[in-house]
Design a protein around this nucleic acid. Sequence first.
DNA 1: AACGCATAAGTAAGAC
DNA 2: GTCTTACTTATGCGTT
Lengths: 88, 88, 88, 88
Amino acid sequence: MPDVGHNGPPVASEQLKSLIERLETLNAEKAEVAEYIKEVYAEAKGNGFDTKAIRKLVALRKHDRAKLAEDKAILELYASAIGCLDLV
Amino acid sequence: MPDVGHNGPPVASEQLKSLIERLETLNAEKAEVAEYIKEVYAEAKGNGFDTKAIRKLVALRKHDRAKLAEDKAILELYASAIGCLDLV
Amino acid sequence: MPDVGHNGPPVASEQLKSLIERLETLNAEKAEVAEYIKEVYAEAKGNGFDTKAIRKLVALRKHDRAKLAEDKAILELYASAIGCLDLV
Amino acid sequence: MPDVGHNGPPVASEQLKSLIERLETLNAEKAEVAEYIKEVYAEAKGNGFDTKAIRKLVALRKHDRAKLAEDKAILELYASAIGCLDLV
DNA sequence: AACGCATAAGTAAGAC
DNA sequence: GTCTTACTTATGCGTT
């Protein structure tokens, strides 16, 4: 009979611990990827590229893609609105 | 006979293209990890946890770690300032 | 006879102008203070101090103060979570 | 005769203390001005202005003296170098 | 004069 | 839906 004498439910405590660990692992992964990105920019700079321009370029391409997705979404919305989704 | 008739060095163009691709891959990975993090918070909320408190806790632990690293850094800075880095 | 023939409300234009002026004045003040800070660091360097170490020290003291506030915040968060805010 | 028996020069310690104090005072002033700036933006928002647009406007006026055309030119150079659109 | 750092601006997400 | 808070990006600054 475990956990006798505790005030709170032990399962919640375990769950919380697990959540924190998962979050910190994921945060570490994210930081690691960010580090890789910095390294790529450093390499670019080492090869004589203008990193500021590259950053701008990457951002522009990202926004372009987002816009494409948006256009596609609204297109499908229109299409569904007139009951001919299959044509898209 | 490659590159005849081009004005700029093609190798730079290839390098740039490669850099862009690597950066976009890494950015996609980062976004994916961020998505996982959101899912964990959603799960936590689904299990009745206070996500605000969890966020605070995670941030606090992160800041604690940062502070430790900072303290260590200033210690080394002081140590080097008095020419006895080996004592650290 | 003011404002006859204008399309937009002139009051908004006046307000906007005032806002911009105030913001630019405040920005100038901020830049001025930043300039003083630079001068203090220059003086420190002139007296043989390691400005990097001083910057680190100042930042550290600032972070310490921030951490105290943060600890207090999470304490209150926990307290409210268990319904006893008055005890804090 | 003060300071007999100390290893380091006490005057440096005093100087350092003074420097730190002056820096922290100036930093506080800077933070205060920053706070005022935030308040002005809050007031602007309260009066129905788009703060993002105002920030942009202020930034533009501040950097009107800069050479944005140069950045634009190098961007276009890179874009044309990789036939930008083909990658999309 | 280029590099890294540190602050500041802008953006996106989450809470109330 | 508004509002703040956290994160990301960008610019400028000091240093080497």
